[in-house]
Design a protein around this nucleic acid. Sequence first.
DNA 1: GATGAATGAGAGTTCATTCAT
DNA 2: AATGAATGAACTCTCATTCAT
Lengths: 193, 193, 193, 193
Amino acid sequence: MAKRIGEKYQVILEAAVKTFARTGYHRTRVADIAHEAGVADGTVYIYFKNKEDVLISLFQDLMIRFVDELQNELVQYQDANEKLIAIINYHLTTLANKPDQAKVTQIELRQIDQTINDGISKPLMSYFQLIEEVIDEGKEQNLYRQNLNTRTARKVIFGAIDEVVTCWVMSNKPYDLSTLSEPVFDMLVRGLR
Amino acid sequence: MAKRIGEKYQVILEAAVKTFARTGYHRTRVADIAHEAGVADGTVYIYFKNKEDVLISLFQDLMIRFVDELQNELVQYQDANEKLIAIINYHLTTLANKPDQAKVTQIELRQIDQTINDGISKPLMSYFQLIEEVIDEGKEQNLYRQNLNTRTARKVIFGAIDEVVTCWVMSNKPYDLSTLSEPVFDMLVRGLR
Amino acid sequence: MAKRIGEKYQVILEAAVKTFARTGYHRTRVADIAHEAGVADGTVYIYFKNKEDVLISLFQDLMIRFVDELQNELVQYQDANEKLIAIINYHLTTLANKPDQAKVTQIELRQIDQTINDGISKPLMSYFQLIEEVIDEGKEQNLYRQNLNTRTARKVIFGAIDEVVTCWVMSNKPYDLSTLSEPVFDMLVRGLR
Amino acid sequence: MAKRIGEKYQVILEAAVKTFARTGYHRTRVADIAHEAGVADGTVYIYFKNKEDVLISLFQDLMIRFVDELQNELVQYQDANEKLIAIINYHLTTLANKPDQAKVTQIELRQIDQTINDGISKPLMSYFQLIEEVIDEGKEQNLYRQNLNTRTARKVIFGAIDEVVTCWVMSNKPYDLSTLSEPVFDMLVRGLR
DNA sequence: GATGAATGAGAGTTCATTCAT
DNA sequence: AATGAATGAACTCTCATTCAT
């Protein structure tokens, strides 16, 4: 089971994002996902271990793609500041354009027991690491102060962006999320110097 | 139902923090809370509408007390910077000293449908407002730049602190959370200037 | 317990008729009856053994009074036919004037396990007996044929009246029940001859 | 849900008659029915909305078959009197031969809220209509008097038969119910003339 | 007698998961 | 691989009844 291949794997994943975003993780029945995907209930279990695995796979899928694309984006920049604004920009723009994904990432994903969940933390780690690399580069480039604790800085940066997105999702998105890139970058970069 | 008075109300609430922190919200049965509180299952329903109401009342209880005490703390300071460091300090120290409460606030509370939940967002608002007032004072005192967007700044500040706490809770608290006050304040206050 | 005296005994009984008629026996909580009666929940248990006992006592109370008054009514008649029309008339008129009582008698009372219930069948028996006495008198008076089986005749008579009342109750009483006395009597008395 | 087809639908229905008749509706647990039917608890909910729906479906099933067979029976007769005795005969004989069904029909079925229940009244209506048609035919054939109110006559007839059956069920059936056909018919037909 | 807070047994129902086809 | 009927464990919540005051 849990074969990461096959047309239906993707179909189910897409049905899951839609259904989780609409109904919420706990209120979504596996049968709902199957129905939305146009497959039988049992088919879900050919591709996924269980309901939680659907949510986690979903997140991993999104996150791997997210980090991949972000890395591609960053190669064009040398300057740590430019990289940082690119990160914030990419983070906000991506979620602004994919409201279902944003809902799942910011809300539904937090409905499963975080304390034991490797499936969630591992893909996040690679994003965290990417941020930390940029901070370190900034320190090497003498853009950021040497006594800055990289890990703490990363938490501040990620926490800030994440909160901005969560507020936007919870407020039912009445404004353009990507307009916050600049002010957020502005605050964060000053903090790093 | 839902009488906010009576000895048992508090007993159940305390039992709930302990049980939610230990077992997690969804894995906790109402019977577990009742057992921990030393009351009958049905008694929980005399004081609370249902299981979700226990969690929300818990949060409201904690949050109201949190904001109250924080406000008392702040009156001794005039300077916005001093107030901001006091906020961060208070936030981190309080949760550092109450690991069960920290677990419930950072993890379990996020397991219920946030999108519809007034019970959670309203008490949070008063904390948000308090932070925003300090930012505004800082602008008046010419400590922070005038073009700073207060709301965005609040999100960055809260998000940063919140993420720092969450990381600490998820990492099983191997270090003293309150030592992060200074570096976090340092980053944030530079961002505000 | 179950003291058939005291002001509250009657108060609770009256509250019970009203509440059972409005909400139905199974959907009525003991607390509802107590509330309607203006007494504490526990007080109900001073006067009644349990919820079922309230319903049965209610029925006994009504039935004893019903048969008593009916007997008083009948003494003025000698003729079995006159007595029979008096019975039908009294039965229909009484229930027509007390819709709550009718609802409880025709509907709610049948919601408790009939097969074991002495409390219901015994008071009914005295009514049945009264009807059978009239039939026997009619046979002695040569109004009704000698080969008429008294018991069967009683069942037919009671069943007929009872069904007429039930239909009236279930149809939400859009017509005057007592107008059916004559046609029902007409059918029944012909059957007896 | 509530698929009126499939082998299990019938199996559950048969288990339900048996269980309701033995234990009574309110004392029967859904698990008891499932156990008697040899299926899992949840399976009951594939075919029925809930416990009440089992009882109602049961009655509908029985009633539809009852009226169907009765109609087939009646086609061989032209004379209204012959039809009437056939009805009484069929009614009493059928229930005499199916004690479980009789118990459920006469006792258990009356334990659910009659006032709102279409599921019960609608199938009964078709039986009522059938009786009324016979009465009308009798009037056309000049067997019954013209001023007879058909509806009232039907109530008297049905009430009489129903009461006879109820008495038999409640007395634990010490005699042959079908022997009452003739005396009951005798009384009723005289009433109609 | 009267109260009403507390009790705790009890059962209906849901739904993730399985597995024979 | 795909199906979907069947499973049965799980758990919330209700409410009749009790009893200390």
